[in-house]
Amino acid sequence: MRTWAIVRRILMQFKRDKRSLALMIVAPLFVLTLLWLVLDSEELTPDIALVDTPAPFALAVEEQDANVKEMTLEDAHDQLAENELDALISWEEQTPRVVLEGSDPSANSAVLRILREAGAQLSEGKQLNPDVEFLHGSNDFNLFDNVGPVLVGFFVFFFVFIVGGVSFLRERTQGTLERLLSTPLKRGEIVTGYLIGFGIFTIVQSVIIAAYSIFALDMFMSGSFFYVLLVTFLLALAALSLGTLLSSYAKNEFQMIQFIPLVIVPQVFFSGIFNLETMEPWLRAIGKVMPLTYGAEALRDIMIRGQGFESFQLQIYVLGGFTVLFALLNMFALKRHRRL
């Protein structure tokens, strides 16, 4: 089949263009690592003030990895307000009462971890059930684990969109598209060739990015690795078909880059990194037309909630649907270059 001619050519071009290859594999790994370094600071030693806590409890806390100070309630509140402390622990009716500074998710999680461990040490496994309050309300403790699945999906989507879109665009600007359209190749064969050629490559890319995030960066993962690959692969195909489609409406590489703030950035906003529950329902519906929303949702179901196929099959079908839709639209858009 003639489609395979295109598939083979794309793979050969990848082999030659080491830089694009690196962009699609190394760049996501690099950025994920940076984010991990920034967000996942488990080593953080929180500053905790203890106010009139029972001696055994204070001892237990001091044994943990924390800077502990005893002070009066007033001083502690002042310092907490000035962000010199991460938490204040006082004692009320047999239970600790915790006020978290709250603006730094990694400090929050560190304090809560310390409380948990101190509690376990004190009561030999029994939960302490602390009464937790936030000075600057937020209960998003482990940011990296929480947004990790979205980030994996996003980077796959982003880089496939750019590289796929630009290489299809170059096909036009260097005249080879017209050349191909002077041959008996059908428009559908060109689009399918691109999907398969890049598809093969994105499988490799997905394996590397997912494996690195989960095993090297220790991203929270409670589901099946295979499902993660399935979703990132489908997300990559959607990105590729969208990128090649939009490249028809760009005159050059620079105009392709201009699609990033229009097409990519809004998808991030609606992908679940930010909590949208307080948003007007009709505004929230915007996210429903974005592939990344479905990919990110499925990845969270798998990685965070450890759910099985039934819970995210809808997202899988929708992603597949996006790919088919964009590919068909692209075949139609190619009509501008050859009517047949």
């Binding site: 260097q174 005249g175 191909l180």
Partner: peptide, 23 residues
């Protein structure tokens, strides 16, 4: 065509091989 419709990163032989298989 007026412009040299070729894939610059591929060798001459690979370009020809591609167009031949397209036909």
């Amino acid at each position: 065509a007026q412009s040299d419709a070729l894939y610059n990163e591929l060798s001459a032989k690979e370009n020809l091989d591609f167009f031949a298989s397209v036909y």
